[in-house]
């Protein structure tokens, strides 16, 4: 492709591949550890409570995933700029 910024593409490739790997690991945690959990205190609302707890765990995992993504991009692209902006 004409004018492709190869350095940026290479760095983003590393970001995307590692985030993709982490995402699959996250789904593995959900499939193997979280999905088999049975959390039912109240028989009538137990199904919804169970679903809500699992949704919260999935939410925490996805926030952690985005946090790692954020750190990775800042490390690769913005490290020099953020270091320069620090007060001496």
């Amino acid at each position: 492709m004409k004018g492709l910024n190869q350095r940026a593409v290479a760095l983003q490739l590393m970001v995307f591949v590692s985030q993709w790997g982490l995402m699959i690991v996250g789904f593995g945690i959900l499939a193997l550890l979280v999905a088999p959990l049975r959390i039912q205190f109240d028989p009538s609302l137990g199904r919804y409570f169970d679903a809500a707890v699992k949704a919260m765990i999935a939410l925490v995992l996805s926030i952690s995933w985005l946090f790692i993504w954020d750190r990775q991009v800042r490390l690769y692209f913005y490290r020099k700029r953020e270091e320069a902006a620090k007060p001496v």
């Binding site: 004018g3 492709l4 940026a8 995307f16």
Partner: peptide, 10 residues
């Protein structure tokens, strides 16, 4: 045009 090409690469 270069940035657009890079985005398509991504």
């Amino acid at each position: 045009s270069e940035i657009v090409s890079t985005i398509f690469g991504l």
